[in-house]
Amino acid sequence: MSFLEVRGLSKSFGGVRAVNEVSLDLKQGELLALIGPNGAGKTTCFNMLYGQLKPDQGSVKLNGQELVGQTPRKIWRLGVGRTFQITATYASMTVMENVQMALISHHRGIFSVWPPASRRHRPEAKALLELVGMESQAERAASVLAYGDLKRLELAIALAHSPQLLLMDEPAAGMAPKERVGLMQLTADIVKERNIGVLFTEHDMDVVFSHAHRVLVLNRGEILADGSVEEVRANPRVQEVYLGGGSTFGEQGAGEEASGKQEGLADA
């Protein structure tokens, strides 16, 4: 049974229809990849799901509760976490302190002056850092972390309020190929262990096809395809959008052509 139900989501900017009648379902324990070329509307969808943009029409329900019209803060409280294309961490704080701040907010302790923030929720923070493989770097400043480690830290922060749904906007962007695979495998393990649903965007098709349970393809704001990895990989319309026809996803040589076209793809 789907716990996230999106129906008829649409958004225009001036005369441009950025998202048009998008509907999707997500089950707990499922990794759903949202892919598409430049201007497909992926980030616009994410911003509507998280309350940063109000849709012109449509419905977003989490466990039957309407999210449209709610603030990002309220949506976060209802169990939705998010990571961003560009990591959002406190550079001046340690790795541990970054996670502690997320936990303090979750426990509604932002305005409490005692005990000091540095002493609060340390066991919980330590457990989250162990979960993402960052426990050995707990006392390092976030400002000196490698980019892949920052992505892991951001994932720990996003998990601090035990979300039911995690929105990951290009989680592997800017990472080396080996780091991309490692982060998505970690995410897949967490999805299975915690039974959460993950909706993620990604331009690396190897990452998508290796880890997604299902793939939804957007093109010019509309759903082009929705199905299993095998169905989407073999879909001629998807091949046309990504590769201009010809090669099939996954064939030897197709990866280089795809990566050349996909490298640097941005969203509208």
Rank of each mutant, 00 (worst) to 15 (best):
Y90M: 14
G81I: 08
G197Y: 13
H107F: 15
A142G: 06
Q100A: 07
E66S: 06
D189V: 00
V22K: 09
L183H: 12
L131T: 09
L159V: 14
L167W: 02
S162F: 13
T248V: 08
F13G: 08
L26V: 12
S143T: 10
E135Y: 01
E66L: 03
L224Q: 05
E222N: 01
M96V: 00
M96D: 06
D206I: 01
N98R: 02
S228D: 05
L165G: 03
I104H: 12
Q57G: 14
D226C: 11
G8Y: 10
V191I: 11
E5L: 06
S259T: 15
G182N: 13
S2Y: 03
I157G: 03
Q262N: 11
P177F: 07
L131A: 07
S143E: 11
L62K: 05
Y90S: 04
A188M: 02
H203R: 07
F249T: 12
S210H: 11
M93S: 12
D226T: 01
L155S: 03
L103K: 06
A158Q: 12
L159I: 09
L78S: 08
A18Y: 14
R82H: 09
V217W: 14
H211G: 06
P236E: 13
R233C: 01
D25C: 06
V99R: 02
G51R: 12
G69Q: 01
E97K: 07
S10T: 15
E240Y: 00
A18F: 09
G58H: 02
G227K: 11
E240M: 01
E170Y: 10
A254C: 06
R237V: 00
